[in-house]
Write a protein that binds this DNA or RNA. Sequence first.
DNA 1: TCTGGGGTCCTTAATCTA
DNA 2: TCTGTAGATTAAGGACCC
Length: 401
Amino acid sequence: MTPPHTKKRWIGHADLDAFYASVEQRDCPEYRDQAVVVGALPGHRGVVAAANYQARAFGIRSAMPIAEAYRRCPDAVYLRPEMAKYIRVSQEIFQTLGTLTPVVEPVSIDEAYLDLTGLERLLGPPKDIGREIKRRIFEGTGLRASVGIGPNRLIAKLASEHGKPDGLMVVHPDEVLDFLAPMPVATLRGVGRQTQKIFSRLGIETVSQLRAIPLQYLEEQLGKKAAASFRDQALGIASAEVVPGRGRKSISKETTFEEDVRNQDILHDVLRGLAAEVAATARGENLSGSVVTLKIRFVGFETHTRQRTIPVPTHDERVILREAWALFLRGDLPRKPVRLIGVGISAWQQAESQQVDLFDQPRERARDQRLLETIDRAADRFGKGILQLGYKRKINENEPR
DNA sequence: TCTGGGGTCCTTAATCTA
DNA sequence: TCTGTAGATTAAGGACCC
């Protein structure tokens, strides 16, 4: 798989260091020299969302149960996240990045890809561009970011991780293979606990060892898609496309109870609140979804989802609640105390303007025209029945996903 | 250890449809 | 009209990411 373009690109990846914890530290100078843990409060259900580097010195990591974090460092400052504040700061950062290049793709609240191709004429070599990114973020928000720059997204991302915290690393195209070779396979995208287990079983620890494994063998162990992805990554092959403003695909809200709940009135009330929040977000973004998903986690962490496609897309909390509750009552879920309940919507109604755009493009229109002509010709030869089938398939291919 | 919340993408199986 | 079939769609679960 070679990228479709041959033009040399410079892709940047900017990543804020211990984002939530850094924002809190910035806003409360008295935390300056302390371990800061943002997440659940000790004594409650929950995990660490972010820990600053002082806290990490005690072995505290993201996603660690808060009880474990407390055991490791009872003296740390424990704070609940203030999402609204972090979103504000995040928007400031993306705005700042937008002053460097219009091609900024936010990937989460605290990181973004940037297409830096062509900026060399204005700002100098990639290293200087990286310094400029860091400087602007710091001057704008008082926060430190790690920046990685490379010929594609994968290398940029790994380079920014490599330098953390407050790092800056540029990997030139001819350095890519050597940069990747000694890395643990776990640093590749998509390698979590399960995949790591498989790699361990196969005796693969580093990227260079992964490169030596025949593709067919990898496919047998991991499936075709994953094998191809890891093979490509091991060779430093990845997309260099930076797509500003990728739309979201779903909106959901969920909550974990402090104690497991059996009472259906309580579950229904909580679900109503969650449905209202989902609906409000959807209305705020002018989205209507035609799939409603209910998520339930029972005692013992047993998790189920149930979904239903509704005929008319909605952002109405009454409809979302009604559908979610119907899924709950459907009778195919265990009757056990509930630990978590959540609801979401997805599968947006096709926006009219988008559909027009698609068929307005000359190539699409020409293809559509050819399709119709083919159908007409075939209609003469075979009659109508087969044709509807063929037409439908073709149209499906043309539809955006 | 005892596991949040909000997402994306992938795989697999069941079901629908022509 | 019946039957088998391929491909599309839907549903559920799991892995992963931040």
